[in-house]
Simulated scan of single mutants.
Amino acid sequence: MKITGEQLYKKLVDEYKIIGEKGVINFSLKNLTISVETKDTVGNLLQEWLKAWMMVEKVEFEENTNSQTFPDFHLDKENKKKGLLEVKTFDWDRGPGFDLANFDSYCNSLLESAYRVDSDYLIFAYQMKGSQITIKNVWFKKIWELSCPSGTYPIKVQEKKQVIYNLRPGVWYSARSRFKPFKTKEEFLSALNETRYQYPQTRHSNGHWLKNVLKNYEAHTGVSLIVK
């Protein structure tokens, strides 16, 4: 069954009713089974569970064989420019601390694969008590709906010792958040471009970056974006 990311989300949330459900994480070796209470395994396990669930539901997909590269799943096996799905998870009590993408890799990838900006993100928020996890919420978003400005740069990033490493999400689900998510992909691309101008390591090579990204996007999609 071939479905879009949004249809997958509705199937998971509205039909399967995953929100509020509980799971238990155990590990067995020979005759000893232990309860796993560390959170560093939860993200990978939820992604593995999602893969198994999609197989049971006969959802057509292709998993990325390299877990370190984008995306996690292709929902359109014929057209690899569409149906790109990233799966993210975070601890509900701590807030979203995951990476949206590596800053340099993402910016470079848009020069050749600008359609990546339209990728879908499926985000699971979980709460863990002992070895039991509860799915608190699930969202289906685009990258610009997760990303936001920050006090340092026009776009929120993870920066250490004045080196930008990753694009980071805001708290998109909270009305109290100081910085709100971008409303459009054009706003997102503009903020990314301005950040590249402000960031010393990309400032001098940024002259034609946005122009080339927009040109590549139109070549792949036939859509001309206007970014100020």
Results as ranks from 00 to 15, higher is better:
63 E>R: 10
188 F>Q: 00
214 L>E: 09
37 E>V: 15
133 I>P: 02
206 N>R: 05
154 P>Q: 05
95 G>H: 04
44 N>I: 10
159 E>W: 03
111 L>Y: 04
127 Q>A: 15
213 V>D: 01
167 L>I: 05
53 W>E: 15
185 K>Q: 11
134 T>W: 02
219 A>P: 14
143 I>R: 00
136 K>I: 03
87 V>I: 14
100 L>N: 00
152 T>V: 08
28 S>G: 12
73 F>M: 13
170 G>R: 00
133 I>C: 08
226 I>M: 11
223 V>M: 05
218 E>N: 12
164 I>K: 00
33 T>F: 01
173 Y>D: 14
113 S>H: 06
159 E>S: 12
23 G>I: 14
83 G>F: 02
111 L>N: 10
181 P>Q: 03
2 K>M: 14
62 E>Q: 14
101 A>R: 06
59 V>F: 04
215 K>F: 06
188 F>K: 00
101 A>K: 03
79 N>H: 06
155 I>Y: 00
140 F>S: 15
103 F>P: 02
142 K>N: 07
114 A>M: 07
114 A>L: 07
177 S>I: 02
95 G>V: 10
197 Y>P: 04
169 P>R: 00
91 D>T: 00
226 I>W: 02
100 L>D: 00
110 L>Q: 05
51 K>F: 07
190 S>D: 11
205 S>A: 13
125 A>Y: 02
42 V>W: 05
142 K>A: 01
151 G>K: 06
116 R>W: 03
91 D>W: 04
6 E>K: 07
179 F>V: 02
128 M>L: 12
52 A>Q: 14
122 L>E: 10
121 Y>R: 03
225 L>H: 07
20 G>L: 15
167 L>W: 00
200 P>C: 05
224 S>L: 09
218 E>A: 07
177 S>H: 04
13 V>K: 06
183 K>F: 00
61 F>L: 13
228 K>R: 11
94 R>K: 14
217 Y>P: 08
11 K>M: 14
87 V>D: 08
72 D>K: 05
126 Y>V: 07
75 L>P: 06
50 L>I: 15
143 I>M: 04
82 K>T: 15
223 V>H: 01
99 D>C: 05
118 D>M: 08
81 K>H: 07
211 K>G: 12
165 Y>Q: 13
29 L>G: 09
176 R>V: 11
79 N>I: 12
91 D>Y: 04
223 V>Q: 06
177 S>W: 00
119 S>H: 06
141 K>V: 05
202 T>A: 11
80 K>H: 09
208 H>S: 14
224 S>K: 08
7 Q>A: 12
72 D>Y: 04
161 K>L: 14
71 P>A: 11
139 W>S: 10
121 Y>I: 09
172 W>G: 03
44 N>C: 13
97 G>H: 08
119 S>F: 01
154 P>A: 02
152 T>I: 08
101 A>N: 11
37 E>L: 12
112 E>H: 04
145 E>C: 02
225 L>G: 08
221 T>V: 12
97 G>D: 13
162 Q>E: 15
149 P>A: 06
67 S>T: 08
85 L>E: 06
30 K>D: 13
163 V>Y: 04
54 M>P: 15
76 D>G: 09
60 E>T: 13
179 F>D: 09
72 D>S: 11
47 Q>H: 10
26 N>Y: 04
17 K>G: 11
53 W>Q: 14
44 N>W: 04
10 K>T: 15
194 E>K: 05
